[in-house]
Design a protein around this nucleic acid. Sequence first.
DNA 1: GGTTACATACCGGCTGGTCGGTATTGACGC
DNA 2: GCGTCAATACCGACCAGCCGGTATGTAACC
Lengths: 212, 212
Amino acid sequence: MGTDAAVSRRGRPPNPQVRARIIGAALELFAEQGYDATSVSQVVVRAGVTKGALYHYFAAKQDLLYEIYRGLLDQQLADLDRIAAEEPDPSRALRAVIHDLVVTTIRHRREVVVFGRESTRLSPERWQALQRDWRRYQDVVRMLIREAQRRGLANTAASPEVVSWMIFGFTTSLPNWYRADGPREPSDIAEEAGEFVLAALRTTHTEGIRTP
Amino acid sequence: MGTDAAVSRRGRPPNPQVRARIIGAALELFAEQGYDATSVSQVVVRAGVTKGALYHYFAAKQDLLYEIYRGLLDQQLADLDRIAAEEPDPSRALRAVIHDLVVTTIRHRREVVVFGRESTRLSPERWQALQRDWRRYQDVVRMLIREAQRRGLANTAASPEVVSWMIFGFTTSLPNWYRADGPREPSDIAEEAGEFVLAALRTTHTEGIRTP
DNA sequence: GGTTACATACCGGCTGGTCGGTATTGACGC
DNA sequence: GCGTCAATACCGACCAGCCGGTATGTAACC
């Protein structure tokens, strides 16, 4: 099962740098201009390679999209599993997950913005593959919310669905407004976001009349 | 000033239905396939008109994008001003704004998803025009948050910026997961979202140690 | 020497946009 | 109320250009 890195193959060995440069150029251009507005000619020019090289490593343009997001999602899922395994307290786990999600989203904001915009351009199979993993992420987060509500958090009127979408909506919109040259550090924003959600879950639900 | 509906012009009068059908078809197709992936030919076919008609009413394809979002933004801004004028209590005003934002976003989710994806395809001038108005919306919301914090809400550790982006991130991501055939009514979701944000602002900030 | 890693020239198809033409209308003189 | 004129509303064939993808060739490596 694992990667077959040890098998010695015939012929000229592939150059990993070429492949990486292509994906890097595609990521930049897709983020700047959008997927459809970016031509493969532009990609190969920025990558400093030729069309032949691109179509040697990738069967079609849309494969670039898949590769771009696959790595980030895998990392975030690994983080999720690690946190869920290490932290038995659901409130603390939820806070840690939010923190990780915010920080990794900011770090890879180009991947996030490209995938958020262009995920529909993927083939159905690949879309479903990513969707399935992303769905698992959602389910774990909602489970954490439910568990935290069962184990002490007071605000049981907040549905895990809406709360989770508050979290995911916040993160996916992060690339739109986060500025790297701004005054706030990613972990700072991550901490505040986590505290905000936990604060909302802590409060008891008060109906209409007494608004403040 | 005002609309010059009374001026009688020469020549055959325009057909508002044609214009509306073109925009409607463009909205549908842009939402389904994306802006770049939708050809002008597809638009005119679905609208049941010809290319000549489209380019008679619109100078370029990107004008369709502008028209699609302009109407929604104007309505949301009008709602915002009305709420801000009628409701002196900032907490109640904030809750009302969130409610309106959620409901109108769900009602016009196709416009929201198209604009969120394709706003960069607009010309710089038009992008700035929409951006300016949208910025005003943000500023009012943040002002309401600040004012609510000054007038009694306890959680002053939540920055208006992060709170506002929690709200806007939630609404802009609504089209991704809201299902019209689902069990929840839009106003139901809107109420819960408002209550969630207000609950978070109500809670006093508790540092690290006592997580639940 | 067989296999892989690229390079380059090339292609059919479709795109956004144009442009000359025609049909339809209101304004206006009478 | 009616013909005339000019302005507008649309029609649809047409275009240059670029697009994603391919076919063929050559050089590098095991």
